[in-house]
């Protein structure tokens, strides 16, 4: 009986570990992020006015401006804390501007700062405010936990090289 009594908690702990494993490692992760490219097109409306609409980037040539859009969603049942999404500027694109407030940028993918505050120090010791074409990565952070079933998006603009 004593032996059996000792075994019960062990089994319970094992089951608990299995449950944690199932929620953490099996199935889809609670955070889903989707990325896509869009471009702005001028579309004539029936009343003759012109409207800027965002359409998928099906046609883009060098020099065109594209939006890099990232959407995030909490599909889990718990709030997600310390959410940070990093997005290197894709090869073939040159960073142009942030499309969402709160985005930070980086020239090396390691040190991030708001665009106006990012300073580049050259090898000869001089420094200058980072130019758009020097920015190699973008980071988005949420200061508050993302509640379950909540979603959001951020975007930045880049030019096809």
């Amino acid at each position: 009986m004593a032996a059996l009594f000792r075994q019960v908690p062990i089994a319970a702990i094992a089951m608990a570990i299995a449950a944690i494993s199932a929620s953490a490692f099996a199935g889809a992760p609670p955070l889903q992020i989707d990325s896509h490219f869009t471009v702005e097109r001028r579309v004539a409306r029936a009343d003759g006015s012109v409207q800027l609409v965002e359409v998928p980037a099906t046609r883009a040539v060098p020099g065109d401006l594209v939006n890099v859009v990232v959407e995030y969603r909490n599909n889990g049942t718990s709030p997600l804390a310390n959410l940070a999404v990093s997005n290197p500027v894709p090869h073939g694109l040159v960073f142009k501007s942030v499309g969402t407030s709160g985005l930070e940028v980086s020239i090396d993918g390691a040190r991030f700062a708001p665009p106006a505050q990012l300073v580049v120090t050259s090898a000869n010791g001089t420094s200058h405010a980072a130019r758009a074409d020097e920015i190699k990565a973008v980071r988005f952070t949420l200061t508050r936990p993302l509640p379950p079933h909540q979603a959001g998006r951020f975007a930045f603009k880049a030019i096809v090289q």
């Binding site: 953490a24 992760p29 609670p30 955070l31 889903q32 992020i33 989707d34 990325s35 896509h36 490219f37 980037a57 099906t58 883009a60 040539v61 060098p62 594209v66 890099v68 990232v70 995030y72 889990g76 718990s78 709030p79 997600l80 804390a81 310390n82 959410l83 940070a84 999404v85 990093s86 997005n87 290197p88 894709p90 090869h91 073939g92 694109l93 993302l146 096809v160």
Partner: peptide, 27 residues
Amino acid sequence: ITNTATASYSVGGTTNSVSSNPATFKV
């Protein structure tokens, strides 16, 4: 041209990361 975003987050004190789909378009 391919874009992939990577996110990190904490749940229950554990930090996890997840990557987005690779979004692509042809020049």
